[in-house]
């Protein structure tokens, strides 16, 4: 007998990745906070380390609407205009 496969069989797609910077010196860092406890404190600390130890020029934080949804359009648009690299982390 013959069985039909129950799993997802997605069409192959190619994604254009943004080129990864080779160094963080002078780069503007976006921090995406997921609203959970201490997420902001963790990301603030990461931002400080990226500035003091890796020479990033600035670190700015955005807050998602809640932990279960993607960063909303306004965040994406602003990050695209004002940042070079992004850190999306979770606190819990």
């Amino acid at each position: 007998m013959e069985l039909l496969d129950p799993t997802l069989e997605a069409q192959a797609q190619s994604i254009a990745w943004a080129p990864r910077p080779t160094a963080l010196s002078g780069k503007r860092v976006a921090l995406i906070e997921n609203t959970k406890y201490n997420s902001d404190r963790l990301l603030e600390r990461i931002g400080e380390i990226l500035k003091t130890e890796y020479g990033a020029s600035e670190a700015r934080m955005w807050r998602k609407r809640n932990a279960s949804v993607p960063a909303h359009e306004q965040i994406i648009e602003e990050v695209k205009k004002t940042s070079d690299v992004m850190v999306a982390g979770i606190g819990d």
């Binding site: 007998m1 013959e2 069985l3 039909l4 496969d5 129950p6 799993t7 069989e9």
Partner: peptide, 23 residues
């Protein structure tokens, strides 16, 4: 129907096959 097909011997074999595939 476009789902991938899998050949098995009989119903008992089919049930074990589905377990083995993680379905």
């Amino acid at each position: 129907l476009t789902s991938k097909r899998h050949k098995v011997d009989d119903v008992a074999d089919a049930i074990e096959f589905c377990f083995e595939q993680g379905w």
